[in-house]
Write a protein that binds this DNA or RNA. Structure first.
Length: 268
DNA sequence: AGAACCCCCTGTTTGC
DNA sequence: TGCAAACAGGGGGTTC
């Protein structure tokens, strides 16, 4: 489920239920979910920690604790849930944190791609991430210069978290359509004016996604409404909302890529 | 440097 | 209908 707007929605939604709670015990049900430290050290260090802050960086969900930080990356199929009362673990639960006030935080993840870190310094995990697209650092000028410094197709470049952090397959396709740029456009051929349009399109798309509480697709994530406003994502063969032409799909970097052949022309 | 391919996993959808 | 292949919101790795 998780791109920036979905993780942001989770942080906003779970914050009031988590702030001030103390972690009484942990139950790691799939060892490889834990990226660091060792399962033994994790169990020992997390017990007794109080949750002081709930936030997000890129697609990472962050729990600031008394003396360490818990980072959770949901990857393709992860989800987080706070439950009240006696809880019977379910099939896809990978980590369960028992909290005060008879509550638990459940990390569920059918595909097991999700990862959890318990670290002293989150900055080390985040070291290679590009800027936050909703921060002030993400200006048209920065984007234009950064695009020119590379020679890559826009689609894979915008998915690259070291270039820009937080976009995933949905929001890249939606942003490129809004910006009227073909996904295969070489980054160093984007004009300053197009870069400004792309910057604005990315921000508008993410802000709308957050406003809609993210996108709900398949069985993984529910509650968001952004899926009802997709312009191109998952709409192969359907009409472009701008010009009516049929949306096309191609594969770029192993990822399904959706675009309008009329609105997003590839010039040469 | 960048593109193309592999892998990690499970569940659902699609095509024959 | 049944079964196999394709596909899925992510990201790390190798090879050319």
């Amino acid at each position: 489920m998780p791109e920036l707007p979905e993780v942001e929605t989770l942080a906003r939604t779970l914050r009031p239920a988590l702030i001030g709670k103390t972690i009484l015990a942990s139950d790691l049900r799939w060892k490889r979910t834990l990226a660091a430290p060792s399962p033994e050290a994790f169990k020992r260090k997390i017990r007794g920690q109080e949750i002081t802050e709930v936030s997000r960086r890129a697609k990472y969900f962050i729990l600031r604790l008394s003396s360490v930080s818990l980072l959770i990356h949901l990857r393709m199929s992860g989800g987080l849930l706070v439950v009240l009362g006696g809880y019977q673990p379910e099939k896809h639960d990978r980590l369960i944190l028992k909290l005060t006030d008879d509550t638990s935080l459940i990390f569920s993840d059918p595909r097991k791609f999700g990862r959890v870190w318990l670290v002293d310094d989150p900055a080390r995990v985040f070291a290679d991430l590009g800027p936050e697209p909703l921060s002030e650092a993400f200006t048209a000028g920065w984007l234009f210069a950064a695009l020119r410094a590379r020679r890559r197709q826009l689609k894979p470049l915008l998915l690259d978290q070291t270039f820009l952090a937080g976009l995933g397959n949905i929001y890249v396709d939606e942003s490129l359509h809004r910006a009227k740029l073909h996904p295969l456009t070489p980054s160093d051929r984007v004009t300053a004016r197009q870069a400004e349009g792309l910057r604005n399109a990315i921000r508008a798309t993410l802000e709308e996604g957050i406003r809609q509480n993210g996108a709900s697709i398949d069985w993984v994530y529910r509650g968001g409404g952004f899926q009802n406003q997709f312009r191109v994502y998952g709409r192969t063969g359907q009409a472009c909302p701008v010009c009516g032409r049929k949306i096309q799909r191609l594969t770029v970097g192993q990822r399904g890529t959706h675009f309008c052949p009329k609105c997003q022309k590839l010039k040469d």
